[in-house]
Design a protein around this nucleic acid. Structure first.
Lengths: 311, 311
DNA sequence: GTGGCTCATCGGTTTTTTCGATCGTCACTA
DNA sequence: TAGTGACGATCGAAAAAACCGATGAGCCAC
């Protein structure tokens, strides 16, 4: 006793309320009249009230029955809504998704990406969190984020990564700097220079060092910036030179600074941008779809950002 | 396939969402882990989406899962509310009741009754419909009303009646009328008098005639009133005499008219007030309770209204 | 690798659901 | 007043499901 009613019983109640006739209501529910009768009785027993007033000639609702029918309809509708919601979210690129992005990508990729997403997938709600790679990975594991957009590789357990495209590093230097006058620029030319990089924690720092085969000890200057904008200001003030990801050059980050940029002659001085998600994530197919979308719409197609084939 | 989810499955989902652990959630639901696991899987299959992201180390909600949990809680709460509503309405004299009352009772009994009901049973909502007996009986059979308060007997099929008390008829006559001067008043004295009664359809007419052992043909005056107030005005204007139910004298219906009243010397010149409901009605116990309440609080205890024992 | 913890899966048992057939009641009719 | 038809309630058997304990497979930590 004291069992809760079941949705089936509520459906039966609504059917009887609609037809005011057990036989017809049973037919409408595709069950036998005896089943319907038993179901209604069980419901009444569970609720402890008579919902219907039966007469061999007529079926009437009691006052409680009337209110119960109203509420049953609401409940059944809520269940239908839940099912419909799930059906909608089964469609790719719909519903909500929580994306983590590192600070050296977000300002250069998101504006265009979000604009295109809104236009082509209006049902898709992307929540963005901008943070350092390690914090994003932690949040991913905690289930606070669904997907990360960052520079890979980045060490993490139980995750799956999808490389999207390469992003070259370019040298940013003040006018008159000697490195602007050599014929061909190679990463080894950076040795001994006043190379400025983002502070510890930004993966861009490690990736830039690795791409140029440098160690942290090769850096002669202790100043470390907290954002690429700060970095640019430091270069503009003649404190040193730096490496910028090419995607940053799409924005007016250098406007009015007089800073010059040049690409490296050698290949491989670059970072790789990719997606990362928990290996058990339910929406990996959707993540790959979003990855393809980013590849196509997230960046302007120029040299230095080489689209990669799907792994 | 395409089955609707069940409440049990929604409960399981909420439990897992709360504990983020199948084993503990199963224990909280008093079921085995395998049952819970199967239940969740079936729910996911029905909805066509993955709600949980399982990992041998952690259980996480998917985005759809989070929304589904919110809605599941709402649904389960709505079901609980329904059960609570039914529990409340199982209490006597609570919830709603639709009462039909005839016009020759309503103005004299309802004001006091409703006031007392509001005071002693604030959870009880009584909806009143005032109409002729036949209309009330029809509405009762249609299920539009739950209970009638009228003068009995009144012919009706499939109903149960509960007499409450007797209500004497008194003679109402203009000053100077010869009937005011005889020693003892008997119903036979009405023969040949200009007796005015309510128009056809009001049961008071029939009951008054029967109580006085008169036929409609004994009435010498063709005028028929549509309400007791009209009747009183006609008597005040000297058109004739009439019979009033004693309960009407509790109100200032005669104020300023100069009309006199006197009781009959013989016994039995009265109508019986009672309740009537469909024989299959679910709340007959509550009806009897309300009947007792009316007997105790509905009228002022004076001579001429004899409380009756329960049938 | 090994042990421990997790959720998924598998058979077998118990419980529930469902159905067709039948019963009792009621209103209407002959 | 007995017969008739329609209705919901009830019953027993069959079918479906829910449920459990045991086991399996994946993962992480040591």
């Amino acid at each position: 006793m004291s069992h809760p009613p079941t949705l089936k019983q509520l459906k039966y109640l609504c059917a009887v309320a609609e037809h005011l006739h057990f036989g017809r209501a049973a037919r409408a529910c595709y069950i036998s009249q005896s089943t319907l009768s038993a179901g209604i009785q069980e419901l009444e027993e569970h609720l402890g009230v008579l919902l219907l007033e039966r007469n061999s000639k007529r079926v009437l609702l009691t006052e409680v029955g009337r209110e119960a029918v109203v509420r049953s309809h609401q409940i059944l509708n809520a269940v239908d809504d839940l099912a419909a919601l799930c059906e909608r979210s089964a469609l790719p690129l719909s519903g909500r998704m929580r994306l983590g992005v590192i600070p050296t990508i977000a300002p250069y990729l998101l504006p265009r990406l979000l604009q295109r997403l809104r236009a082509e997938h209006p049902e898709f709600q992307l929540f963005i969190r901008e943070d350092l790679s390690q914090h994003l990975v932690d949040a991913l594991h905690q289930g606070e984020l669904d997907l990360l957009l960052l520079a890979i590789p980045f060490p993490a357990d139980g995750v799956e990564s999808l490389p999207l495209f390469d992003d070259d590093f370019v040298l940013a230097y003040p006018p008159q700097h000697p490195l602007g006058r050599i014929a061909q620029l190679h990463s080894r030319d950076l040795r001994g220079q006043d190379l400025l990089l983002l502070e510890e924690g930004h993966c861009l720092r490690g990736h830039a060092l690795a791409a140029c085969r440098l160690n942290a000890s090769d850096l002669s200057v202790p100043y470390q910036a907290t954002s690429l904008n700060t970095l640019v200001q430091m270069v503009a003030n003649g404190i040193g030179i730096t490496l910028l990801p090419r995607m940053a050059l799409d924005t007016p980050i250098l406007a009015g600074t007089g800073i010059r940029t040049r690409a490296f002659a050698e290949d491989g001085v670059r970072r790789t941008i990719g997606l990362m998600w928990r290996r058990q994530a339910a929406r990996s197919e959707e993540f790959r779809l979003l990855g393809e979308f980013i590849r196509q719409h997230g960046v302007t197609p120029t040299e230095g950002r080489t689209p990669l084939k799907d792994s």
